[in-house]
Design a protein around this nucleic acid. Sequence first.
DNA 1: CCTTAGCACTCGGCGCTATCGACTGCTAAT
DNA 2: ATTAGCAGTCGATAGCGCCGAGTGCTAAGG
Lengths: 347, 347
Amino acid sequence: MTQAIENSINERAQHFLKVLIERYIRDGQPVGSRTLARDAGMELSPATVRNIMSDLEELGFVASPHTSAGRIPTVPGYRLFVDSLISLKPLAELEINLAKEQLGGEGGSLTVVEAASKLLSNLTHMAGVVMVPNRDIVVVKQIEFVALSETRVLTVLVTSKGEVLNRVIETSRRFRASELEEAGRYLTHHFGGQNLEEMRRRVVREMEEARHSMNTLMAKMLEMADAAIRREERSDYVMAGQTNLMDFDELAQMDRLRQLFTAFTEKQEILHLLDRSMRADGIQIFIGEESGYDTLETCSVITAPYQVNDQVVGVLGVIGPTRMAYDRVIPIVDITAKLLGAALKSL
Amino acid sequence: MTQAIENSINERAQHFLKVLIERYIRDGQPVGSRTLARDAGMELSPATVRNIMSDLEELGFVASPHTSAGRIPTVPGYRLFVDSLISLKPLAELEINLAKEQLGGEGGSLTVVEAASKLLSNLTHMAGVVMVPNRDIVVVKQIEFVALSETRVLTVLVTSKGEVLNRVIETSRRFRASELEEAGRYLTHHFGGQNLEEMRRRVVREMEEARHSMNTLMAKMLEMADAAIRREERSDYVMAGQTNLMDFDELAQMDRLRQLFTAFTEKQEILHLLDRSMRADGIQIFIGEESGYDTLETCSVITAPYQVNDQVVGVLGVIGPTRMAYDRVIPIVDITAKLLGAALKSL
DNA sequence: CCTTAGCACTCGGCGCTATCGACTGCTAAT
DNA sequence: ATTAGCAGTCGATAGCGCCGAGTGCTAAGG
């Protein structure tokens, strides 16, 4: 289908579309036929360009804000651009080194995920976001129980990523330290190496069995483990540089901006989007309305999954105005994903 | 000093200042002599009011944006208002019940601190903020070490609030499980019941001693405990309703707004302010420039410490434009602080 | 048939002007 | 001390004309 459209538009028109979009991304103003004729590098008069523009408009790749203004790209225009016209700009040596440095060393108290998020926002001057691995991926390494008081037990789940999930649980009966210890050993042995999802399923099943066999200790322990898992059920993300978005004219209207920032704190919509693009492989680009969320109407989102040992463990990306320097941002997202994967592996 | 100024301004003028501020807070527009004469309820002509206004302006309590506009309150004007003129509006029964409800039950997955923050922002339509207890106050209850791998040990610090601070630490040598266990028991016995600050000091001292006595195990354990404490060195806050601030005209300029939101994510300035007001007792009000931070120039901050068992454990508050309904917000902050204290006690 | 010059037309942006309305400050009378 | 009256200030709004950028269309030329 896209093929059909692409065919219906000749080489020259595509070239003009490309130049137009590049120019618009730079200046942010509608591009007129005169400017375009000059920029395109072909010896064509503005009048001819006007005819081409008319065709492009007919096909829906460009539009004009009003009769006597130049043309600006539409969403399908951007789409065609990023899919087949764009020439990506490789990162400068300097930038790559900077990136490696920031993700490599134990950058102060920042986690590597936070560092990646900041890195994205710094390099792009937009908002950077990194989704942290969720329970489908996180593998349980160890389970411990620690008695806090007569009726309160702390459940500690240690994951393969060195993260620690903990939860305080009220219990109806009192446990001896040795009981807790044994339970921890048992569960670690039993569930170690499974991801949270698998573990959750097994725990539920065994809870059933334990109930029948009237093994109170084990039933209670399973219940506690279950509670600790539930807490981490939903995945989460780390964001940086939101305020960068305030500098873009296209987001200067308060209501838009407010919607956007509300979405950032509510998190669900963004999470859905990130989740979707984790399942797909490779770089994903959502331009304006394509994402399907009203709040992102005037924004584009560029994402890339990152992997450790050939397994996708999360996704990161950048959020900015539809009019963004795709040629620069795409490589940035791409490389950051690779570097983050490498950094995580080395942990 | 304040007394002197207050004396220099007679009862009637104060009344007019009060009415002016109330009116300005409602409408957001400069108040003219005609309106004020009507609102004040005294049988005085606009001309007389103008004379009074002139006096108030001379004293610096009001100012006019330009020659032919009415008057608006200055920071000293607001100060006098909140200090001695204001008539606080008690919360409606309904609102109090709502508040109790939201802070009482285990509101879903929200911590009570998050709930309080949201409550503040909902009731005031501004930004709510709750600072969580820091290491001066948090008391250590228990210390545990869990071996993760040959060279990595998880340090778990359990606090009196049921919070769990943990940190993964690289070690140079390998420990047996029994060693870790014993170390945990020893440290718990030794440092349990102390707050983080005390504990930190002792740990540092004992680290010195241990080094001399060449007790490697103990030295290493102390070092790990120290690392875990350091991580929690800085206090933190939870914020809600930041986006509410986008609706206020006085914050509609992007650069202001950006500064403000940057301050929210950077956190230090806000933390300083909150920290200051935790040391003071009772409700604190910072009007505009009074806070001492440029970013809060057009904002006011109202804070109240909250306590558990007669000991102040944290502080909460509201951030909004200088022109806010102080008469409503002050009681809201006050009551929320009390309710949060109560809610924490019941945990 | 594609390209191009020419031309009429559109429309946003800018600056200028006039008007209106809400105030003030001052003065003089009560 | 209070007040009416009055001149004056200033922001906000609307109207007007002009400029410039850019378009679409038409007709002529390669």
